[in-house]
Amino acid sequence: MSLLAVEDLVVRFGGVTAVDHASFEVGPGTLTGLIGPNGAGKTTCFDVITGLQRPTSGRIRFRGRDITRSPAHKRAHLGFGRTFQRLEAFGSLSVRDNVRVALDIGDGVRGLFRPPVDDVDHLLARVGIADYADRRADSVPTGVARLLDLARALASRTSVLLLDEPSSGLDERETAGLGALLRELVAEGRTVLMVEHDMDLVMSVCDGITVLDHGVVIAAGTPAEVRADPLVQQAYLGHCDEGAGTETTSEIEPVTETIPTVRP
């Protein structure tokens, strides 16, 4: 049985359909890659799954339960955790305090009166940024901020982890480390869903891959199946084979997020 199911999801921003009747499932204890060209609707899917974006229609089920209308913080308590493509570290706090806050919030009101359980430094060491623990989060390099985002998402007893381009900003060595870490997390029983542009990473660590193109799920299967799928070849890799898939840019800007202007 699937742990997380996206059912017939549609998200429209103004006239643009970012996600177009997409359905896919994520099995428990698996590492699933969500890939597709820029603007395919991957981050939008993440926003809907984590409760930051209301879908136009469709459902999200978690352990069979409909959570489509449940707010973001409630989903966090169900075990959802995520990272952000555009990084959302708490800039005024130190790297260590960023992770501590995640623990504090996870503990809720009762946690305020309980002595701190300090596995913070252990977590920082695990993702490989222990050296930066005392630096302010707005002063660290992008790669570190990205790993911090991951450490923070891990802190609050997350069982389902959604990672939005975790390798961008990392060098080759760090990316390899990330791949190993992801496999470890899955081995510990966590479920990971990952949007990623580094095809080598995706193909080497994922159990399954779902491919989105223009908001539509065009393929799903094992890395080998997806790689061989002619639809994927055509839409994703196209004929610019030497460069495809290495770019990292932003998704379509949802209209609701842009700044209001005068409507005469």
Binding site: F80, F90, S92, G108, L112, S156
Partner: peptide, 23 residues
């Protein structure tokens, strides 16, 4: 204390706080 840390965190990024479980 912890509450102060949470206040600062919420000031810096409400989005991240909500996905960490803060109402």
């Amino acid at each position: 204390g912890r509450l102060g840390r949470v206040l600062i965190a919420a000031r810096d990024s409400e989005t991240a706080c909500s996905t960490l479980g803060l109402d």
